[in-house]
């Protein structure tokens, strides 16, 4: 068999039994690798659900303020953190999704094969690799030092993390829209902006929305960019634009390092809440992909 030089030579004249055995060993190893990945996943889910379910109650999810970590479960609740997570992640999505989709529109609809579009796409890929803690430091240096702690700063940090992800997923979806649709609308005399807004984006909306939901699901669990942009307070702060705030993820981080039973229980309860939020977003994304995606790979 002709094999590229430098590759391991494969000798098909080896005894058939041994070759078959090697094949079975390799296949077994692949399944074993899959099992290796399932073990921690199942272990984590089992622990979080079994320990979290006993902590969760209506008053845990909505009550407040968050009690000092020495107090046992049943005092106060994580309401402030739930509200904080929802408002900070929600506003981050409001910032990042329109900008990301428009960026993808530029790359796919306007830039084409030009160098600028290629550079922007390349940089978006590189930006997905920027560590989340660096995003936190970045927002700290350009925002917190001048304007103080606020939920808004947390939204900026999460938005910066979501932006390249939204660009990448929207771009993949726009690429799938057939050119015949665009050409048909140009033939009717529509301008490029009109074609993009009324024909191309609606055709790709299913994929764009599900990609954006996955980005939100990832962002909702981020801790590092929030630690020193929103601080971690104990009471509800519904004003996103001023004053320190709190979030489920940062509360888990603080409580996980505390030696008290009540704090541990609150950490597990918050972890379960966070995972349920993330999985729910992912499930909705899957449903949208299955139902509303017109052009799939």
């Amino acid at each position: 068999m002709a094999v590229a030089s430098g590759q391991p030579t494969i000798d098909l004249r080896e005894p058939a039994g041994w070759r078959r055995t090697k094949n079975q060993i390799a296949t077994g190893a692949m399944w074993f690798a899959f099992a290796c990945m399932l073990v921690p996943l199942a272990f984590v889910l089992f622990t979080v659900i079994s320990k979290g379910i006993s902590a969760i109650s209506w008053s845990f999810l909505t009550g407040g303020p968050i009690p000092p970590n020495v107090l046992p479960l049943g005092n106060g609740g994580m309401g402030p953190a739930v509200i904080g997570t929802l408002e900070i992640t929600g506003f981050a999505a409001l910032l990042a999704i329109p900008i990301g989709v428009l960026g993808a529109v530029y790359i796919n609809e306007y830039g084409g094969k030009g160098w600028l579009a290629r550079v922007i796409g390349f940089l978006a890929d590189v930006m997905t690799g920027v560590p989340s803690i660096v995003m936190g430091l970045f927002i700290f240096t350009i925002w917190i030092l001048h304007f103080g702690y606020s939920g808004l700063a947390g939204s900026f940090a999460l938005g910066c993390l979501m932006l390249p992800v939204v660009i990448r997923s929207s771009y993949e979806m726009l690429k799938l829209v057939p050119d015949s649709l665009r050409e048909a609308s140009y033939a009717l005399g529509a301008t490029k902006a009109r074609v993009t807004v009324t024909v191309v984006l609606p055709a790709a909306v299913g994929g764009i929305v599900s990609g954006a939901l996955l980005a939100i699901a990832r962002a909702a669990g981020e801790t590092a960019p929030l630690l020193f942009t929103i601080l971690t307070v104990e009471s509800t702060n519904t004003n996103l634009f001023s004053g320190a705030n709190t979030a489920l993820s940062t509360q888990i981080f603080v409580n996980a390092q505390s030696p008290f039973v009540g704090a541990e229980a609150r950490a597990w309860g918050s972890a379960l809440t966070l995972i349920v939020i993330a999985f729910a977003l992912m499930l909705v994304a899957r449903i949208i992909t299955a139902r509303f995606t017109r052009y799939a790979r």
């Binding site: 990945m37 921690p40 996943l41 272990f43 984590v44 622990t47 979080v48 989340s132 996955l214 699901a217 990832r218 909702a220 669990g221 981020e222 801790t223 590092a224 993820s249 888990i252 981080f253 996980a256 390092q257 541990e264 950490a267 597990w268 972890a271 966070l274 995972i275 993330a278 999985f279 992912m282």
Partner: peptide, 18 residues
């Protein structure tokens, strides 16, 4: 994908306590 969506802090919590 489920593995990818579990937040870092939850891995940390599980790591330190379990």
């Amino acid at each position: 994908d489920l593995l990818a969506v579990i937040p870092s802090v939850v891995w940390g919590l599980w790591g330190i306590l379990v």
